[in-house]
Amino acid sequence: MSAEQMTSLVQRKARSGREAHAARAMSLARALRLTAAKQGEKMMSLSLSALGVTRQTCSGDDLTSRLDETSLILLMDGPGTQVAAAVLDHVLVAGLIQQQTMGKVFVTPEGETPRANTSTDAALCAPFIEGLMRHAAPMPEEEADGILLKGYRFGVWAKTPRQAKLALDANDYQVIEITLDMAAGARVGKLSLILPEPRAPSAATEESEEGGSEAAPTATLGDTVLGLHAELTIALTRFKMPLQSVRALKVGEVLDLNLSSMAHALVIDANGRAISRGTLGQIDGKRALQVEQEQTRRYAEPRRRASDREGLDLPDVTAGIDVSPDQRSQHEPEDLGVPDVSDIDIFGDMDDLPELPDMEEAAEQADAQMERLKELEKEAAAGSRSQAG
């Protein structure tokens, strides 16, 4: 056997080995095929098979052509702030809803007009998409393929392609199109997964992961607050001036501000309202404002504690009153002209009071009196009727 024949034989064996390995390897396309069939049977008892899986790279600016008005667009929240999209054509949406509501997928009629999608359609289709991506993510042998699908869950339904385009703000995307056969050919729909390219971890993230819990923050809250940029609008004074006079102002004219001190500067908000006041000056050659604390806010909160009494200027009513004999004698009734009524008998001689009748006898007397009053009323009524006749 010549060298050329030996090389050709080795190449054929290597090729057959690679093909056998490729057939056994779990690629992203194969993972999606198997997962789609399993999830269709598990979640909806639907016979579902993937007829084909294609994968393309697309830039964010070219996504408009892949977002159709008649398709159901589900935005998926991913790791960090990444947003993906699942686009289901109207044939696939109708099949999934028929299976879940009526237990059967009907054959697509000729000339079927796509209807408008609703939030109910999104709620019925979103669990299948979540299950497909979640269970297919750990299956591919290539780690990058698994990361592409990992960590996504349903976020919101995009009513229009424009809303979806605004949410999909990544630079590059992987577009995976899956052609799904439902109920042995009753319907054939298409699912498109628009997945952003995974972001590479930053150096700071890698260092924090390596350091674990021992990594300390580089800046405190105080440093962050002091580093914020704040703009203050300061007004030294305010006065009214006719618009005609303002228009007549010329370069070089001087306005009398009637200002003798910088201690009454006003801090103005964006609406022109004075929110505080202070003294305008400078520190280290830079303009500075010493803001005064408003006194009206000092007692904005109720002050009920014993520790708050020092600043309230209130008398102490908890301590006992120690009155000396001299002070007590100054307030005796004799000194104030008040007669002594301690020996007056306000009840008199209780023995002179008549005996009270028994309670039962008193009740009988009262009933008899009421009977007499009723008889008198009847006689008066009879007399009035006879006079009228």
Rank of each mutant, 00 (worst) to 15 (best):
A37I: 05
A136F: 04
G52W: 04
Q330C: 04
E141V: 12
D89Y: 08
Q100K: 12
P357G: 03
L75Q: 02
L195W: 03
D367F: 07
A123P: 00
A186L: 04
K286D: 00
E112D: 09
P140L: 09
R30I: 04
Q56T: 14
E310K: 13
V53K: 03
G348C: 02
P325T: 07
L280T: 02
P109H: 09
K104G: 01
V246Q: 00
D340A: 08
P109T: 11
G348Q: 01
M370E: 14
D223H: 08
H264N: 13
A235S: 14
M102I: 15
N258D: 10
R24E: 08
T220N: 06
G185R: 06
E375R: 11
V93L: 05
Q99K: 15
G155M: 02
T7M: 12
S49F: 08
L228Q: 15
A84E: 01
Q290A: 11
R247W: 00
S45C: 07
G337P: 04
D68R: 15
V175G: 01
A123D: 09
T318C: 02
I97M: 14
S307T: 12
R30Y: 07
L46P: 03
G285E: 01
E377S: 11
A31Y: 05
L124I: 15
M370H: 12
E379T: 04
G348Y: 01
F106E: 14
S342W: 01
A170V: 03
A263I: 03
Q11P: 01
A3L: 12
S16K: 14
P161E: 05
P198G: 10
A164Y: 04
S16Y: 05
V107E: 13
E361Q: 12
S16L: 15
T296K: 14
T218C: 02
L34Q: 13
G189K: 07
D269W: 02
A274M: 10
A23H: 09
V267K: 05
S213K: 14
D313R: 13
